[in-house]
Design a protein around this nucleic acid. Sequence first.
DNA 1: TAAATAGTGTCTCTAAGACACTATCAT
DNA 2: ATGATAGTGTCTTAGAGACACTATTTA
Lengths: 226, 226
Amino acid sequence: MTRTKAHPPFAVTVDLVVLTVIDDALNVLLVQRGEQPFAGSLALPGGFVEPDEDLVVAARRELAEETGVRVGHIEQLATYGAPKRDPRMRVVSVAYVAMVPQAAEPRAGTDASAASWRRADTLRPSKLAFDHARILRDGVERARAKLEYTTLATAFCSPDFTIAELRSVYEAIWGERLDPRNFSRKVLTSEGFVEAAGGLTTRGGGRPARLYRAGPATELDPPIRR
Amino acid sequence: MTRTKAHPPFAVTVDLVVLTVIDDALNVLLVQRGEQPFAGSLALPGGFVEPDEDLVVAARRELAEETGVRVGHIEQLATYGAPKRDPRMRVVSVAYVAMVPQAAEPRAGTDASAASWRRADTLRPSKLAFDHARILRDGVERARAKLEYTTLATAFCSPDFTIAELRSVYEAIWGERLDPRNFSRKVLTSEGFVEAAGGLTTRGGGRPARLYRAGPATELDPPIRR
DNA sequence: TAAATAGTGTCTCTAAGACACTATCAT
DNA sequence: ATGATAGTGTCTTAGAGACACTATTTA
């Protein structure tokens, strides 16, 4: 790597696509911008990386500060650095995707009053600041793809969950119905996907369902095809 | 995104994992560093992004300048930004993976004399500067994974290729032998993977093989399982 | 004609897709 | 008893894995 030339200064930010499933629909955590540019627009939570801070640490910190949400699974998505993506200056943004259980509520924090869940499918891309519509699209596509060949779906569930709840995660994110019997068979015969938690649901209105926990496996082989 | 705080300056670089198959082995394009730190070490080609330059443009430019190699397929890999990854200053590096046909020779360019292909499997990670061993590992893993569910392997072949050559790309990158008959069946029945180019190989020593070109498909569904 | 490489066909086995009934709870 | 949800088994079918012989060229 030749490093003889000048190294022009860039601002580096992190942005987060935080996803959850609410009422059988995929939702994304957004904040209301208070300042220019894009004041009043919705935006992904995020902000500047500090001088000696690791990227993923910055992502977790910004998320906690802006929304009070603490994530389970988080992974790097991609980096967005088109020269004019921020009108004020040259900003390179490292985007992360995170998955949280339905439970997570944006709590009052530094800026948390402005944070809320929005349905990903009905959100109009033009409402989003910067290139965040593009980042969101990439994040959702990442989640869709990873449900196929990883056990990521359990990251959307509370610690104990039923097979039907797990299925509804797939259905919400893929936007299609899955056969309950085939889904059950697949999940229960995939080594390490889930393990029995030993209880039953109690919220009446039908036969109680068995509870499961996330198992040790992270990959799904063979995958669940969309 | 809260942007009230200071935005500390970072240097932003691109690094490239450029892969090819030579003599049935996966090779990576490396340059010899001439300066500190890591003078004399091997490194991935790369360098600083210019103030108004798009990231992928910077990647192509640095690669051409340092090695004279022009890539076909290139895609973003990940971004590496640990605070101490470069001892001189805070550098965030956006890594790309690129695939080139066997033909590509590093030509004499600005720094090209120092560029050469190295076998990926016998390369000692400790020979690499910065965190480039990690980036290389991630790049190779990306290539391995994408052979499964995309038609990427054709990017390693010259415009006209035989099924056996395509198979040897898989074998080199996955490091395992594939059954020629099953592989043939899979490739030829995967809609749009390859199309007949209409000629035959002529380099004697056996029955001539039919030539194919890359087809229009980019995804492989169902995938080729490793 | 021998050595090298290309090309093909069948059987088996795994797993997904389609599909309907019984079980257990609350009211 | 009824309504609601949970849980399960079988048949069919697509496609991967294993496997051996014939075809075409050069030396």
